[in-house]
């Protein structure tokens, strides 16, 4: 069960993160942003928008697989690792700057997920059902 969660959440975060990166690439492709048909056509002509939709579908399938066993409260919290990975990739791919508060917030999110991972491991010790 531990490996199921580990792999499941990694796959989920990858899909979620790449969806956001693809949306950003779509938006860049479709510049300038306008509320008209020409902008919609520019969006539709970007391959990235289809990659983003595919990532959304992949994330949904992964999420429904995880929820077969994962409790919703901690699982929903853990899925917010996406916030950290999107911040990291926005620096690497788009040369965005992140603030000190964003760094501290990311550290808090990671610390919280480590707590959740440890609590799952503890809860599982008596009868492992994996």
């Amino acid at each position: 069960m531990r490996r199921f969660y580990l792999i499941g959440f990694l796959v989920l975060v990858c899909f979620d993160t790449f969806a956001q990166v693809c949306f950003k690439l779509t938006a860049n492709h479709a510049l300038p942003p306008e509320a008209n048909l020409a902008w919609v056509l520019r969006v539709a002509s970007s391959p990235w928008v289809y990659a983003a939709i595919a990532c959304y579908i992949g994330a949904f399938i992964t999420w429904m697989a995880l929820l077969e066993h994962a409790p919703i409260g901690p699982a929903f919290a853990a899925s917010h690792l996406e916030v950290v990975s999107v911040l990291a990739l926005s620096v690497v791919i788009f040369n965005e700057r992140i603030s000190a508060a964003q760094l501290i917030g990311s550290a808090l999110i990671i610390a919280g997920i480590v707590c959740l991972a440890i609590s799952e491991t503890d809860a599982e010790k008596p009868p492992a059902d994996a």
């Binding site: 409260g73 901690p74 919290a77 853990a78 917010h80 916030v83 911040l87 508060a101 964003q102 501290i104 917030g105 990311s106 550290a107 808090l108 999110i109 990671i110 610390a111 919280g112 997920i113 480590v114 707590c115 959740l116 609590s119």
Partner: peptide, 13 residues
């Protein structure tokens, strides 16, 4: 604690 840490981290971001 883990869930509250994640929530506070998202708030700080």
């Amino acid at each position: 604690v883990g869930i509250l840490l994640v929530a506070s981290g998202v708030a700080v971001v």
